[in-house]
Amino acid sequence: MSVVRDINGIDSIRSKPKVMIYGVGYYATEAVRILVRRGWPIVAAVNRAGPKIGKDLGQVAGLEEDLGVIVQDCETADYAALGADIALVVQTERLSSNLSAYRRLLGAGINVICHGSESYFPQVADHELADEIDELAKRTGATYTGTGIWDFSRIWPGILIAGPCTDLHSLTHRSLTNAEVANERMMRAYGVDMTQAEFAERVTATPGELGELYKGIPALVMHGLGFTITKVNERREPVLSDCPV
Results as ranks from 00 to 15, higher is better:
E234I: 04
D6M: 04
G141C: 05
Q72V: 06
T206Q: 15
L171I: 13
G23W: 02
E118G: 10
P51V: 09
E184P: 04
R185D: 12
A108P: 08
L176M: 07
S12A: 15
L225V: 11
R202S: 15
L225R: 14
V43F: 10
G50D: 05
T228V: 13
N98F: 03
S153I: 07
T195E: 12
N47T: 08
E128N: 13
F121W: 07
I133R: 07
L105A: 06
A49H: 10
D85E: 09
W150D: 06
T204F: 00
T177W: 04
T140F: 03
H115M: 12
N178F: 00
A137C: 07
T204A: 14
F227T: 08
T29Q: 14
V46K: 02
S153R: 04
D134V: 10
S2D: 09
G216Q: 02
P164N: 01
T204L: 03
Q123A: 15
G116F: 06
A49Y: 00
V124P: 06
R185C: 07
A77F: 01
G54P: 07
I110L: 05
G211I: 12
V90S: 15
N111Y: 00
S119R: 06
V192G: 03
G146Q: 01
I7Y: 09
L67H: 05
G109I: 08
T166N: 15
V60Y: 03
L105Y: 05
E237C: 00
W150M: 11
C165A: 15
Q123R: 12
T147Q: 05
V3L: 15
Y22F: 03
E198Y: 11
R202E: 13
Q196F: 11
I110A: 02
L168E: 13
T195Y: 09
W156F: 05
I161S: 09
I161N: 08
S175W: 01
V203Y: 01
A219L: 02
A61E: 10
I10V: 15
S2A: 14
S175I: 05
K215T: 10
R14N: 11
A45E: 08
A28N: 04
S175V: 09
K138E: 12
V181Q: 13
G109R: 06
G54V: 13
G107V: 12
A219I: 03
T140H: 04
D6S: 10
A125R: 10
G208T: 10
A182L: 14
A179P: 05
D242C: 01
I161K: 14
N178E: 08
I7E: 08
G54C: 12
E93C: 05
K231G: 03
R38Y: 00
P244H: 02
D66L: 09
V4W: 13
R33P: 03
T172P: 02
L35F: 04
E184H: 14
R48Y: 07
T177V: 10
L225N: 11
V43T: 13
D85G: 01
L176V: 10
R48P: 03
L95T: 04
W40C: 02
P218G: 02
V181P: 03
D11N: 09
H173D: 01
D167K: 09
A80N: 13
R14E: 11
R14M: 12
S96D: 14
G25F: 04
P238W: 00
I13F: 12
A205H: 07
V46F: 00
D11A: 15
T147E: 01
Q196I: 13
D73I: 01
H169W: 04
V46E: 02
L88C: 02
